[in-house]
């Protein structure tokens, strides 16, 4: 059968401009997706606006001498000693990182470098379950198990909550985060480097310590920073196990009970937006919130900077 090529007439070819309906649908889909993307941006800005507007009232009207060098954080009585919260937050973060860094990093090194595929298949989901434990459960655990069994053995009081107990609880909560980001960073190191090292007669531990970890360093740094900002932002565990209700006397000892920034906000704002107190109690919440927001924002930007450096390597 032979097919002869016939020139087509204009009518047969039709218009090249496409179906208007299809073009319209395409445009609508694009708009909807754009709306979804912009929604979270808008909400973020609204949150910052709400935070700023009330915090601004606090900063404008407050007698700044009540925010520094006072006996503690007593917002209902007009005493807003910010260092009380900062020191408690600092301690919780330090304790959490001391607990989570070796365990998280150790788990990551094991999973990325040592575990056989079968073991990894079992261990990794378990680690992810740990990440999924509600923090309120961990708060209970910190108060009822960590305090009497761990803190008591470290020279503290086991019968009540303390910054130390809360810090250990937050640390446990942070382990999966560090493990997961660090493992990703190590997995991103090309196997060619491991082979090069093994081919030189390096033992496995030498390869890990001298090649893999240094090559993954920016990812590991990012993991640490994200973990710090997570530990600072954690609320429920410190609120339940921190050993203070809605006010705290200044302390520099992690064995005492105190309030972190987050716990101070949660304790004032629980159950009702009708925060009662003298003058600026309500606004003080927003001021503390703004401080926390700025610190974690700075940390996240730092982490992003390190993560971007990963891609520039190898």
């Amino acid at each position: 059968m032979t097919v002869t090529h016939m020139p087509h007439s204009d009518a047969e070819l039709g218009s090249l401009s496409g179906s208007p309906r299809r073009l319209r649908r395409e445009a609508i889909i694009k708009q909807v997706l754009f709306g979804a993307a912009i929604f979270s941006v808008v909400v973020s800005f609204l949150i910052v606006y709400a935070l700023l507007s009330e915090a601004w009232i606090f900063m404008r009207d407050i007698d700044w001498s009540t925010t520094w060098g006072q006996i503690g954080w007593f917002p209902r009585r007009g005493i807003y000693d910010v260092p009380t919260l900062l020191v408690a937050t600092f301690w919780v973060t330090i304790v959490a990182m001391v607990v989570a860094t070796p365990l998280g990093l150790g788990a990551a090194v094991y999973l990325a470098e040592y575990a056989r595929p079968g073991v990894r298949k079992i261990l990794k989901p378990i680690l992810e379950i740990l990440a999924g434990i509600p923090s309120v459960v961990l708060g209970f655990f910190a108060l009822l198990w960590i305090a009497p069994n761990v803190v008591a053995n470290l020279g503290g009081e086991g019968g009540r909550g303390s910054i130390l107990a809360a810090g250990i609880g937050v640390g446990i909560l942070t382990i999966p985060l560090i493990a997961s980001i660090s493992e990703d960073a190590m997995k991103a190191v090309p196997d060619a480097l491991r082979e090069a090292s093994a081919g030189m007669g390096a033992r496995k531990v030498t390869t890990v310590l001298r090649v893999v970890l240094p090559a993954a360093i920016s990812g590991l740094a990012a993991a640490m920073i994200v973990a710090v900002s997570r530990a600072m932002g954690e609320t429920m565990v410190v609120f339940m196990a921190g050993g203070a209700a809605d006010a705290a006397i200044f302390t520099s000892s992690p064995y005492d009970g105190s309030l972190t920034m987050t716990a101070a906000m949660a304790s004032l704002a629980s159950g009702t937006d009708n925060v009662v107190g003298e003058g600026l109690t309500f606004q003080s919440l927003f001021f503390v919130g703004l401080l926390l927001f700025l610190i974690t924002l700075a940390l996240n930007m730092l982490a992003n900077f390190f993560v971007r450096r990963i891609r520039e390597q190898y």
Partner: peptide, 20 residues
Amino acid sequence: AVEVRRRIGMVFQKPNPFPK
């Protein structure tokens, strides 16, 4: 195997210098 590889060096298909 570590002792073996110290006597028998290897060069790979793709150049794989360490990021050092």
